[in-house]
Design a protein around this nucleic acid. Structure first.
Lengths: 341, 341
DNA sequence: GTGAAAGCGCTAACAT
DNA sequence: ATGTTAGCGCTTTCAC
């Protein structure tokens, strides 16, 4: 392994001091344009690479932001991550990403790692397990900003990037009612997280406003394709007899819908379907799935931009607020019972 | 912002030396069990957190591996990344991830960042643009191991985790022929990458072995849902009249297949379809898509494990080889023309 | 505009 | 088993 070239090596070669070389490399402070060029060229020639640790050790900044997500292999999440990475990269920040796998313990471990690695800021989406979130406090104590997206804490003292789940879900449920559905079923996961609680609330609100509507809730283990398939079995066996089903995400909706079609149900004729997220799978199933458009990529970009602007001192907005992204219903064949439209 | 607690603070409090504290914290070397406990407790109480930079600066290791991928928001890629992150996390490594967005320039920039951040190792999948890959040489010069997966360099002096694309594609094409198809079309992307070149080769080989078969190739701009949809239009307009289509990935296959069904074609009756990857969408479309199972998650896990084992000096395998994962054809309705299962 | 010197927090010889 | 010492490579006062 060749020895690393340091600014001292450059300094010696050029008969300068290390400080001058450092200044030239950062071209921040005043410096003679000519010496700057000489240093740059010499650095290039000698194969110099800056040592981020030494720099970090001095400046106490890392230009790294930590991202903690439940899992990264869902379409929604990878869209969010892609948005974050892009913004961060453009602004000269690195991202380190870790998955909690829906486990509070892993989430805590991951925060510890990020904490020790001195990330400049954190972007997180919470696990489904309930927790006191105390492990996020350390960051605040060190003035390391934390922003949440999608699955966010209940209290309002955190910066959050979300959609109005309640409203979106209300509109989705209302749409089913408008299409003539009266026996509605909401398929979701048991969780105290804003995301699922609010989607439930919106559903309930729509039901409550409809005198001749009946609304039920079916909890499944996971909002996955398999979870959705399993829910179909339960729906058939337990004789829920819904004429409209609103599922808390698209993947589970697709699993449930396809399975019910397999059982012989007509969708949307007998059962209308609405999902959530506007996952690409919603355009691939047949019939195409009506769903709520949740702009994950944009959410990720905004969260990253907000965090980084704050870190760079460029953000003059008050730094504690909830940003609500626009989510809207995309009506497709799966819920299209009426011929108007 | 509170001042950071250092090992010196702990040392002073406990009347020990910094080295002893350091040793206790790492519990690597021999140390009195009692003092170790005292140090640990004290560190906890004082709110100590290790300073990774200082440590890295000394040890010249970062416990971080850099991952460079074309884009992270595909099902296949996020499965790979999930596998890598999991392995890395379990072994005490961080991952920093960046996207090249299929651009050589971005790929080079990303390698620079990783280089300057002194990652211990690199896992990469190449952009579609052709490049000389010279920017990966620096890592080798510094003894930083680089492993490639999926889209790998042509030469054989790199560690690669791949599948036998040629063989898999041959089997896929052969399957179409066995189902009675004689006018085969391969929809793919123009690229010199192993992945697409080999899939083409496998297709050609199957065609060559079938005297009464005709094989054509349609290049599209991107192997995406939209790309697939566009290809359908071209297929219809240009009167390719294929009775079997093999598409180089599932997302494009699904786009093409759905669009052709929309045009009125019967799948698999008139046109049989085979995709590639076993993306979850292949089980969601109707008819379900026959495809090649490409175990992304496992590929990611293996690549990460191999790299980290090597870094930890635990790998006694010779460190320059090609690992071929097992890929096999999953036959579903989209290619099922015959009734003999 | 440039240099000298100190120190960020840790680890690894080496000495005891 | 513990302490002493030096130094990783950089940035940043403070001089000049």
């Amino acid at each position: 392994m060749k020895k690393e070239v340091t600014i001292y090596d450059i300094a010696k070669t050029l008969n300068l001091s290390a400080s001058t070389v450092s200044r030239a490399l950062k071209n921040k402070t005043v410096i003679n344009e000519d010496t700057r060029k000489r240093v740059l060229r010499c650095a290039e020639e000698m194969g110099y690479r800056s040592n981020a640790f030494a720099s970090n050790l001095r400046t106490k900044r890392t230009n790294t932001i930590g991202i903690i997500v439940p899992r990264l292999d869902s379409n929604f999440m990878s869209a969010c991550l892609a948005g974050m990475e892009e913004v961060a990269n453009n602004k000269g920040y690195n991202v380190i990403i870790s998955q909690s796998h829906e486990s509070v313990i892993r989430e805590e471990q991951n925060t510890s790692t990020m904490y020790n690695n001195r990330v400049d800021g954190i972007i997180a989406s919470l696990t489904i397990e309930e927790s006191d979130l105390s492990y996020f406090e350390r960051f605040k104590q060190k003035n390391v900003p934390v922003v949440f997206f999608d699955r966010v804490p209940d209290d309002s003292d955190n910066v959050c990037f979300v959609i109005d789940n309640c409203k979106a879900s209300y509109i989705a449920s209302k749409h089913l009612i408008e299409q003539g559905c009266r026996n509605l079923l909401h398929v979701t996961i048991k969780s105290s997280l804003n995301v699922y609680v609010d989607r439930m609330k919106g559903f309930m609100k729509a039901i409550d406003e409809c005198p001749d509507c009946n609304g039920e809730v079916l909890y499944i283990d996971s909002l996955s394709l398999l979870g959705g398939q399993n829910s179909a079995k339960i729906i058939v066996e337990n004789k829920f007899n819904p004429d409209g089903i609103f599922v808390a995400n698209d993947m589970a909706a697709v699993g449930c819908m396809n399975a019910l079609i397999e059982y012989g149900f007509d969708v949307p004729g007998q059962i209308a379907f609405v999902g959530f997220n506007n996952d690409v799978v919603s355009t691939i199933v047949s019939p195409q799935l009506t769903t709520v458009n949740y702009p994950g990529r944009e959410a990720g970009m905004l969260a990253a931009k907000s965090l980084i602007d704050y870190l760079n001192g460029e953000s003059n907005i008050e730094y504690a607020r909830k940003v609500e992204l626009n989510a809207y219903l995309i009506i497709r064949a799966s819920s299209h019972k009426l011929n108007n439209t």
